[in-house]
């Protein structure tokens, strides 16, 4: 693991506005994730962990402060620059998988590659490789409705890694799964971290999931504890 942080947030404030009401979520937060780490973020609902994840992933900008990820300052980027950053550097894993039901497993995995200049054949090969990594090569022609929850989440993980991002952000990746499937998914995330050297930041409420991470950080009322 390199000592240089791949994620570095400095004095970050994030405030949401609902009409004239302002809702501060993060207040002067400093946060770092070393390259190659597998960090779990825990905390009660409303503690700001999803907001923090969104800032790291370039889905949102801070109200104040600096967010540096993979050597890029995200707080100053335009929407289009953030979109390009996400496409190139971030892999997303959502709680409810968020696969497109009209696409097969392989096509879902191929989706992020539509934004690249790769040809159809190369896209297909890469999608198949990613599905092989998550152990679903046999299911590439299946639609999400034909897969179990655990399999859907593994397809979502294949989609997250298909363009070889440096960082995976996972928002409650085991929240909708039974214990056995959750363990399989966590096992897979662990392998991606150790074997493929992916940096993983995972929000979770599940202590068993947090145990799989190398570091667990606790957030409460917008501050790290």
């Amino acid at each position: 693991m390199s000592a240089e942080p791949i994620v570095k947030l400095s004095a970050v404030n994030k405030t949401y506005f609902r009409g004239s009401e302002s809702i501060p979520v993060l207040d002067g937060l400093d946060f770092e994730v070393p390259d190659g780490a597998f960090q779990a973020l825990m905390g009660p609902s409303g503690s700001g962990k999803s907001t923090l994840l969104h800032l790291i992933a370039g889905l949102d900008r801070p109200t104040k402060g600096s967010v540096q990820v993979a050597g890029k300052e995200l707080s100053k980027m335009s929407d289009a620059e953030l979109a390009a950053f996400r496409a190139n550097h971030i892999g997303f894993i959502f709680q409810s998988y968020n696969l497109l039901p009209v696409l097969t497993a392989q096509e879902n995995v191929e989706l992020p590659l539509l934004l690249t200049k790769l040809g159809r054949g190369e896209r297909k090969t890469r999608a198949q490789t990613a599905l092989r990594v998550v152990g679903l090569e046999e299911r590439m022609g299946h639609y999400p409705r034909q897969l179990s929850g655990g399999q859907e989440q593994r397809v979502a993980i294949a989609r997250a890694i298909v363009n070889d991002p440096q960082i995976l952000v996972a928002d409650e990746p085991t929240g909708d799964l039974d214990r056995k499937s959750a363990d399989d998914v966590l096992e897979l995330l662990g392998r991606l971290n150790t074997e493929l050297k992916k940096t993983i930041v995972m929000v979770t409420h599940d202590p068993a999931a947090a145990e799989r991470a190398t570091v667990t950080r606790h957030l409460n009322k917008g501050a790290l504890q």
Binding site: A57, L59, D79, A80, A83, A84, R86, A87, N88, F92, F94, N98, L100, L111, P112, L115, R159
Partner: peptide, 14 residues
């Protein structure tokens, strides 16, 4: 709408 959010998260543009 949620799917459009996912696509945007993956890097698709408006």
């Amino acid at each position: 709408t949620n799917e459009y959010g996912v696509l945007r998260a993956l890097g698709f543009l408006p």
